[in-house]
Amino acid sequence: MRLLTGAWTTQALSTFAQLRLPDAMDGDRTVGVEELAREVGARPRNLTILLRYLAMLGAVTEGRDGFRLTETGALLRDGAPASMRALALMYGGPFYDSFARLGHTVRTGQVAFEHLFGENHFDHFARDPHLAELFDRSMAAGAAMFDPVPAHPALTAAAEAPAGATVVDVAGGNGELLGRILAAHPRLQGTLLERPHAVEAARARLDEAGLGARCAFLAGDFADLPAGGDVYVLSRVLHDWDDERCREILRHCARAMPDHADLLVVERVLPSDGSMSLATAWDLHMMCNVGGRERHAEHYARLFADAGLTLVDSSPLPLDGHVLHVRKADPTRQ
C-alpha cells in the first residue's frame, strides 16, 4: 500500500509547495491551522488533513497548538538554500501529468510527454516563460551533485596554467555549475552556451555573484560550440538524448577541443551490479518525459570512442552522480 500510494506523496508535497505553506510556517515556531489557512487561502479542515499526511512524511510535526516546519519541509521554501520547491512543482505538475501515460511509452516507445503535450519538453517549456523559469530553477535542486566538481584535477590543472585557461560550459543552464567553478578558481575564465532565455538567466545569476565579468555568454545550439577552450563541461546533457544525438553533440565537442583540452561529463551512471541508485529512477523519468536515458559507464565509453574521444577515468559525486573525465583519443592509436 505504501508503494501504491506514492502518487499521493508527490501531490501532497507539491501542494505544500504550491500553497507556499513552508514560507508561511518559516521560523522555529508552531503555527495554528486557522492562522495558516487564512494566510494561504485554504479551508482549515482540509488543510489539517493535508498537514497530518505531511507529518507522516516528516515535512512538518504536529503539536497541541498546531504544526511546525521541519528541516525537510524547509527545503520547499521559496528561495531557501538548496530549495527544492521548483522541483516539487515540476514533479507535481507537467511531469506528473505525463507520467500517467507511462504505459503508452512502454507499449509504443513514444515519449509520454510528447504524446500528452504534442511537443518535446524543451520546446514546450521554452514557449511558456513561467515554465521555462520553473524548469531552470528545478535543475538547481540537484546542485549538491556539483559540490566536488570544482576540485577535479582537470580544473585544478587548468587554473594553475601560467597563461590562464577558459572553461566552456555547454548547455550550462542557469550557470550554477560554472559559477561554482569560477568562484573556486579566480584565475579561470568562463564561457556559457545555452538557449537565449537561459543565457539571460545565467548572466543575471553570475552577475549577482560578482562573476559575470569573467564569463562570456553565447546563445546557440551545440553546433555553435566555441573552439579553443581548455576544459569543456557537459553537465546532465547527454542523458536528454538518444545515442545518435549524443554522438553528434560529442563530435561537436571533439571538433572544438584543442588536443590538450579536457571534457568533464557529469551524469548519473547506471550501476553495473543492479544495486539501488537514483540513476535507475531517472532512467524511467527520462524515458517517459524527455526521450533520453541514463547509461552504464561502458555505454558512455563507446559513445566517446565513436566521437574520437576516450574515457580517462570516472569519479563519484553526491546523489549517485559521476564525473567522467574525457580527452581526445590519441591519433597514434587509431
Rank of each mutant, 00 (worst) to 15 (best):
T61Q: 03
A254F: 09
M1G: 06
R29G: 05
D283T: 02
T156R: 10
D136H: 13
G175S: 01
D242E: 10
R247C: 06
L192Y: 12
L3T: 08
S83N: 12
T108E: 02
V326T: 03
D283L: 08
S98A: 14
T332N: 13
R236D: 15
F135Y: 10
V199I: 14
E71D: 12
E119F: 03
T310E: 15
G308C: 11
T30Q: 10
D169T: 03
H130N: 11
R195Y: 09
G321L: 05
G173R: 04
R333T: 14
V149T: 15
L21F: 03
L21E: 00
F304P: 02
Y300C: 09
L270K: 02
L89C: 13
P150A: 11
A219M: 05
M56Q: 14
A261K: 00
F67M: 10
A165I: 07
E298G: 10
P153C: 00
V269W: 14
V323K: 04
I249A: 08
L225Y: 07
R251S: 14
M257C: 09
L263R: 02
D169P: 14
L102G: 07
L317R: 13
A227K: 08
G274L: 00
A17R: 02
D23T: 06
F113M: 02
P318A: 13
D273S: 07
R29N: 06
D123W: 05
G58P: 11
T30R: 11
V233R: 01
T108N: 05
L76I: 05
D230R: 05
G73K: 06
C253P: 09
R68W: 09
W282C: 11
L19K: 01
A74T: 04
L177K: 04
D97W: 15
A157W: 13
A165Q: 03
P22C: 15
A256M: 01
E114S: 15
G73F: 06
A329R: 07
G228P: 10
G229S: 08
V40Q: 05
A100L: 08
A163H: 13
P331D: 07
A209Q: 15
A219Q: 11
R255G: 08
L319V: 00
S98F: 03
L89E: 09
A86S: 15
G175Q: 00
A163C: 10
L116D: 04
F95V: 09
L76W: 14
